[in-house]
Amino acid sequence: MSGLTEVRHGTDKEFAGFLTELVRDVAPRLFAIVEEYGDREDAEIAAYGLAFGDRADINSADGDFQMRSQSPESALALFALSAGTIDVSRLHLVWLDGAVVA
């Protein structure tokens, strides 16, 4: 066990609680990049992503590409470059825990 502290948790239930806490502490945040059409007339999900502490992994909603960026915000900027060629009026970064970044 290099680099890890050995900790014993008495019961299966206690250890399961420890594992749940461990996973929650390091879990990535789920977000979506959403394309807005017109002036709030319609919207479509362009991609979903996982935000880790040091990067964001993004998959297009239709499954045709994947990418990695430094952050969800930089992924949004990359999508903005490609969205200029279609009828997208605005892009949104939407966190699935409830926060929306315009």
Results as ranks from 00 to 15, higher is better:
residue 1 M to K: 15
residue 2 S to L: 11
residue 2 S to T: 08
residue 3 G to T: 08
residue 3 G to Y: 08
residue 6 E to R: 15
residue 9 H to N: 11
residue 9 H to S: 09
residue 9 H to M: 11
residue 11 T to M: 12
residue 11 T to G: 10
residue 12 D to G: 14
residue 13 K to C: 00
residue 15 F to Y: 15
residue 15 F to D: 09
residue 16 A to T: 11
residue 18 F to H: 14
residue 19 L to E: 13
residue 20 T to D: 13
residue 22 L to E: 14
residue 22 L to V: 04
residue 22 L to G: 03
residue 23 V to C: 08
residue 24 R to M: 09
residue 28 P to W: 01
residue 29 R to L: 07
residue 29 R to M: 06
residue 31 F to N: 02
residue 32 A to W: 04
residue 33 I to Q: 03
residue 34 V to P: 03
residue 34 V to R: 06
residue 34 V to N: 07
residue 36 E to F: 05
residue 36 E to C: 07
residue 36 E to S: 07
residue 37 Y to L: 15
residue 38 G to P: 02
residue 38 G to H: 05
residue 40 R to A: 14
residue 41 E to C: 01
residue 41 E to G: 02
residue 44 E to I: 04
residue 45 I to S: 06
residue 45 I to R: 15
residue 45 I to L: 12
residue 46 A to V: 05
residue 48 Y to M: 04
residue 49 G to K: 00
residue 53 G to P: 10
residue 54 D to I: 00
residue 54 D to G: 03
residue 55 R to H: 06
residue 57 D to R: 14
residue 60 S to H: 12
residue 60 S to W: 01
residue 61 A to E: 08
residue 62 D to C: 09
residue 63 G to L: 08
residue 64 D to N: 12
residue 64 D to V: 11
residue 66 Q to W: 06
residue 66 Q to V: 06
residue 67 M to V: 03
residue 67 M to P: 05
residue 73 E to M: 08
residue 73 E to H: 09
residue 76 L to P: 11
residue 76 L to V: 08
residue 78 L to R: 13
residue 79 F to I: 00
residue 82 S to K: 05
residue 83 A to Q: 05
residue 83 A to P: 02
residue 86 I to T: 05
residue 86 I to R: 15
residue 87 D to K: 15
residue 91 L to Y: 15
residue 91 L to C: 12
residue 92 H to A: 05
residue 93 L to M: 03
residue 95 W to C: 01
residue 96 L to T: 02
residue 96 L to V: 03
residue 96 L to S: 04
residue 97 D to F: 01
residue 97 D to C: 07
residue 98 G to Q: 05
residue 99 A to C: 07
residue 99 A to P: 00
residue 100 V to H: 13
residue 100 V to K: 13
residue 101 V to Y: 15
residue 102 A to M: 10
